[in-house]
Design a binder for these strands. Structure first.
Lengths: 195, 195
DNA sequence: TTCACTTCTTGCCATATGACAAGATTAGTT
DNA sequence: AACTAATCTTGTCATATGGCAAGAAGTGAA
């Protein structure tokens, strides 16, 4: 089997995870490249997620509409991130989120069946996925704590430090709701920082 | 095997879950009763959780100390709740929380080994536990959204409606940090509501 | 280029919440 | 009962953030 050049991205993503080259030969063919156009939905509220994605390039957000009708960005994804709604994919629960491409995207998609098959048969894959889940859970928890304990400026500065590419490529209104503030406030915070 | 009267609580907890009586005869003996005194720690930051608990009676909170030294209550538990730090118990990651009894408590404890054994061998137990995990994940997500979208008064009113026993039994300073505000503000909100 | 549309910034004012400190109330202990 | 400590309330004032609207800047399409 000659290596598909297109799969270079996947090789890079997995190579740091302790998965052997032999295992990669099983894993990587399960993924197929898929492109989303700007504003396409990867998943809509109420659906059950039947696949999930690695983002090779582009930006994606998940959002909810709260009880007052506000659009709140819940997560922002970019290259090398995994887009997965765990309750949906693990427990077949209809998702409560909308997941939408903010830009044109190149993604690598895997079906739920392939995922589950590898999850149960390849220990190193399972460990890698567990790591992603823990990371996701921690991130959610940290974000929640940050909403309580930090002021908006600090949350923005942290995002700026940890994910500058997000700030450069995502509109401020989405970043603002993700940080728990309005775009007006975010604009003022940015002005203050630049001085 | 005659039924232990002490296990009446466990029978009630499991009976609504679709687990058969035969299975209960396997499951319930794995739990042992354990009492915590007020202020005892069930788990301290940095430990790896090796057991988890159902609360029969009493109140428990989990909290973190944030980067500024603030004590922030992350979750509040009461009768019939499960106290479990999923990243810790599933992935052997040291917990980032402290879990402490707020009152004297009667709990039912199960070891990690017994838990895992039943998780893999008893399908209905696994499903029940998955349900608890999904519930916990959703609750965290909803709480996070609420911190962004709702004002403090609404968050308090929701807690009051959904968990009045928590409000009656937990000190306001812990409820306040759980809701993302100070005890001073919470006191004012309560006054406003009572008028 | 021009036009429409979205995004971003800014001004003005309102308000929710925080910080701090002093009392009032309650609970726990001897 | 009496004492101490913890908890809760309240006052005063400061400030972070929101709401709204207008204008500026940027983007995309014909």
């Amino acid at each position: 089997m000659t290596e598909n050049l297109d799969q270079h991205f996947l090789n890079k993503v997995f190579e740091a995870s302790g998965i052997t080259k032999e295992e990669l030969k099983v894993i990587i063919p399960k993924y197929k490249e898929i492109k989303f156009d700007k504003n396409d939905y990867l998943l809509k509220e109420g659906q059950v997620e039947k696949k999930y994605w690695f983002i090779e390039s582009g930006f994606v957000r998940s959002y909810v509409i709260d009880t007052k009708g506000n659009d709140i960005t819940f997560n922002l994804y970019s290259s090398k991130d995994v887009v997965i709604d765990y309750p949906s994919i693990f427990f077949f629960a209809p998702t409560r989120e909308n997941i939408q491409a903010l830009t044109d995207c190149v993604c690598w998609e895997i079906s739920l069946e392939s995922y589950q098959e590898m999850f149960s048969s390849i220990a190193s894959f399972r460990e890698q996925q567990k790591g992603l889940l823990v990371g996701s859970y921690f991130a959610l928890k940290q974000h929640s704590i940050s909403l309580i304990a930090d002021e908006a400026k600090d949350r923005y500065l942290r995002l700026l430090k940890e994910k500058p590419h997000i700030i450069q490529n995502v509109s401020l209104k989405h970043i603002a709701t993700f940080l728990g503030i309005t775009d007006t406030s975010l604009s003022r915070i940015r002005k203050e920082i630049s001085n």
